[in-house]
């Protein structure tokens, strides 16, 4: 019984949140890795792209809510999502046209593009602040819990509850669907293959008649779509503040680099590595351990390796380990 309680607590505090957070990271990291593969730079504006897309989703959500349109037990934000995605795609394509395209034409060094992307980050961040402000915005509605902790306790008779929030379930489902679609697109369609070819060998892709502008456009569209979904899910799960998305940059970069920059599969695997590492290191294990050993052995400590404030240190640590021992990442990126 105690083993079951420990397992339940482990599921409740580590596995469920880890899957949800990992899914959100994965959708963001996929965008980073795709942009890296095709445009060959680390996009520092990606966090704020997520914030931008989410801001529009929130505006549409409020509008729908004010008209009485809801999605029943699901968050209304899901209905607003397509509109947010369209706004983000428009923004991405406009940014590419006004900003990035020039640097492609003059074949600027990647580091210049990194700096340019920080400029774009500012502009986007400024826009987000002007559109929706800096304070916390709540836009979650619908059923809060998919698996109610009280129900779980009554059903199983365990002392330890297990809760699954609707937003957590949606995050995982969205990540699975998006990844399946994306991998199908990249592996099976001619356009997807041409994107991989361009990412693999730009010059040869040109010789083969693949249009770089088209590949770049599709990349922005996919990255913008994924970023909006990722940002919205993160916002639904943890509540929205425009500024927190900047701090998602570090875990997303770490995830993309762990997997191998440019490798979509790597980005997904890397995201779950980062998410679970963060939770394992910053969770208090006292409760789980309490079921496995006599509680009096444990004393007063929380059995928490690092306080949650140091989340960033975990992704940073993973990044450092990868840079030291395997800079090309698990799946051999560039």
């Amino acid at each position: 019984m105690d083993i079951l309680n420990a397992l339940t607590a482990f599921l409740n505090f580590i596995v469920v949140p880890g899957l949800a957070y990992g899914s959100q990271l994965a959708l963001g990291a996929l965008g980073i890795t795709l942009i890296f593969g095709v445009l060959r730079f680390s996009n520092f504006a990606h966090g704020d792209t997520m914030a931008f897309g989410t801001a529009f989703v929130i505006l549409f959500t409020w509008w729908f809510q004010s008209m009485g349109i809801t999605a029943g037990p699901l968050p209304t934000a899901l209905l607003a999502l397509p509109f947010g995605i369209l706004a983000t795609i428009a923004m991405m394509l406009a940014t590419d046209r006004v900003v990035y395209r020039y640097y492609r034409q003059v074949r600027a060094k990647p580091i210049i593009l990194v700096i340019v992307s920080t400029g774009v980050m500012f502009v986007m961040n400024g826009l987000v602040r002007m559109i929706i402000g800096t304070s916390e915005q709540n836009f979650t509605d619908g059923a809060r819990m998919m698996l109610n902790p009280q129900d779980f306790k009554t059903w199983t008779g365990l002392a330890e509850p297990l809760a699954i929030k609707t937003t957590q379930a949606i995050s995982l489902a969205a990540a699975v669907i998006c990844c399946a679609l994306l991998f199908w697109f990249l592996q099976k369609t001619r356009t997807g293959k041409s994107m991989r070819a361009y990412s693999d060998n730009e010059d040869l892709a040109l010789l083969s008649g693949i249009s770089p502008e088209r590949v770049v456009m599709i990349t922005w569209i996919i990255a913008g779509t994924l970023a909006t979904i990722a940002g919205t899910l993160y916002g639904l799960d943890k509540s929205y503040r425009g500024v927190v998305y900047f701090s998602l940059l570090m875990p997303m970069f770490a995830a993309a680099i762990v997997g191998g920059l440019g490798s979509p599969l790597g980005a997904v695997v890397g995201s779950f590595i980062v998410a679970f590492s963060e939770l394992i290191v910053t969770s208090a294990w006292k409760k789980i351990l309490g079921y496995l050993v006599p509680p009096e052995w444990l004393g007063d400590g929380l059995y928490q390796a690092l306080s949650t404030d140091y989340k960033v240190a975990v992704s940073f640590g993973i990044l450092i380990i990868v840079l030291l021992f395997r800079p090309q990442g698990i799946y051999g990126g560039k």
């Binding site: 991989r196 070819a197 990412s199 693999d200 892709a205 083969s208």
Partner: peptide, 21 residues
């Protein structure tokens, strides 16, 4: 080209397919 003349991350069939893009 002399070097970098294949798509290393793609299968042989995909390389040919891209040639016919």
């Amino acid at each position: 080209p002399q070097t970098h003349n294949i798509f290393t991350g793609m299968t042989v069939a995909e390389n040919l397919e891209m040639g016919a893009f």
